[in-house]
Amino acid sequence: MGIPSIQPYFMPRKEELPKNRMSWTPDPGRAVLLIHDMQQYFLDYYDIRASPVVELLENIRQVRERCRALGIPVVYTMQPSEQTAEERGLLLDFWGPGLTAQPHKHGIVHELSPAESDTVLTKWRYSAFQRTELLELMRRWRRDQLIICGVYAHIGCMLTAGEAFMNDVQPFFVADATSDFTRNWHEMAMTYVAQRCGVVVSTRDVLDALAEKSSGAATFDLEHLRSEVAGLLERPASDIQSGDSLLDLGLDSIRLMTLVERLRAANFDISFVELAERTTLDDWWEILSARMPHGRWTGAEEQAHGVRG
């Protein structure tokens, strides 16, 4: 009963990953990053000075920073430090009391501490979708891809990938940003995901795919801004008029921060406060059109602003 002591093993290299049945690629407009159960309790079973943990922490950090830069929502799961026997259910039979026995190890490891803009979900079962708001949040954000990092590969990470697939969410299992009890268990999880429910990728694959998507972003204009806001408000774009108060339409601080992150990812120099002080699309476009990144004007905007090629 309980988690075994985990001996060091080498992280899978890109050339060692299983062949995927699907050719899906991460898209910053569709993806959510899941950092799964990276709590001190679970990391303490490893030698933190050796593989795979050294690579695990660094690779998750790199993926997280790229996702934040692109405005991709970052979601953490954390198992609770206190659970009754009824709440723990069959996990008690398999793993014992878990975190309840060591509540002081409940927190996310300091190297990956969540930011205020990140979402932290309390997780009760193997899958991050069970008894959480993850699927509801993804549907609210209009996201249908899940980039999965964390521990343990063949338990929560693999089951989360399977449940994502069963909810028509494309899972991306980041092989060298997950870790497991042994290399054999890790390989089993990768093989299952690649052949049955998702795509297995390396950290470099994710970083490269997101870099390619960001460099080829579409021209940003007023209608693009309207569409972004409509998605956050879960309304048709036609419902949002340029002079409407977006606060009255339901734009709260969390949605506004998500928009700010997306604008920064599109190379706009804009702050949360600047948008929070204004309330309409017209107000926001007045600011943004004056700070349009080089090369992003539409033909109509060039004419309106006197820009010449």
Score class of each variant (00 low, 15 high):
Leu92Phe: 09
Val63Glu: 01
Thr77Phe: 10
Arg143Thr: 09
Gly107Pro: 06
Ile108Val: 13
Arg88Tyr: 09
Leu56Ser: 02
Ser81Cys: 00
Ile148Pro: 01
Glu136Pro: 01
Arg88Gly: 07
Gly156Asn: 15
Pro103Gly: 07
Met138Asp: 12
His110Pro: 05
Glu163Ala: 05
Leu159Ser: 13
Asn59Glu: 12
Val151Cys: 03
Glu65Asn: 09
Leu121Trp: 00
Ala69Ile: 08
Ala69Leu: 12
Val120Glu: 09
Thr160Lys: 01
Met166Lys: 15
Gln145Pro: 11
His110Glu: 11
Arg68Val: 04
Met166Pro: 15
Gly98Ser: 07
Glu133Trp: 14
His154Phe: 05
Leu135His: 11
Ala85Asn: 09
Ala153Asp: 05
Ser127Met: 11
Glu111Gln: 14
Met138Asn: 14
His104Phe: 05
Thr77Tyr: 05
Pro97Met: 01
Phe129Asn: 07
Phe129Gln: 07
Glu111Ala: 13
Phe165Val: 13
Tyr152Gln: 10
Glu55Arg: 10
Val169Ser: 10
Arg125Met: 02
Leu146Thr: 11
Ile155Val: 12
Pro73Arg: 02
Trp95Thr: 01
Gln79Gly: 10
Asp168Ala: 15
Lys123Asp: 02
Arg125Val: 00
Cys67Asp: 02
Leu99Phe: 00
Ala115Gln: 15
Trp124Pro: 08
Leu159Ala: 13
Pro80Val: 12
Pro114Cys: 08
Lys105Gln: 07
Pro114His: 05
Gly107Ala: 07
Leu121Gln: 04
Val109Ala: 03
Thr77Gln: 06
Arg64Tyr: 08
Arg143Ile: 05
Thr122Ser: 00
Val75Asn: 10
Tyr152Cys: 12
Ala153Ser: 12
Gln83Leu: 00
Arg66Trp: 04
Val74Tyr: 13
Arg61Phe: 04
Phe94Thr: 01
Gln79Cys: 09
Thr77Ser: 11
Arg68Glu: 11
Ile108Leu: 10
Leu90Trp: 06
Glu116Val: 05
Ile155Gly: 13
Arg61Val: 03
Leu135Ser: 02
Met138Leu: 14
Glu82Asp: 02
Ile147Gln: 11
Ala115Pro: 06
Leu99Asp: 06
His104Gln: 11
Glu65Cys: 07
Lys105Trp: 12
Cys149Arg: 15
Ile147Arg: 08
Phe94Ser: 03
Pro171Gln: 14
Leu90Cys: 01
Leu121Ser: 09
Ala69Thr: 14
Thr122Ile: 00
Ile148Tyr: 04
Ser127Ala: 03
Leu99Cys: 03
Leu137His: 00
Met78Lys: 12
Lys123Glu: 02
Ile60Lys: 05
Leu90His: 14
Leu112Ala: 05
Leu99Ile: 10
Leu70Thr: 04
Glu136Ser: 03
Pro171Ile: 12
Ala161Asp: 02
Glu133Gly: 05
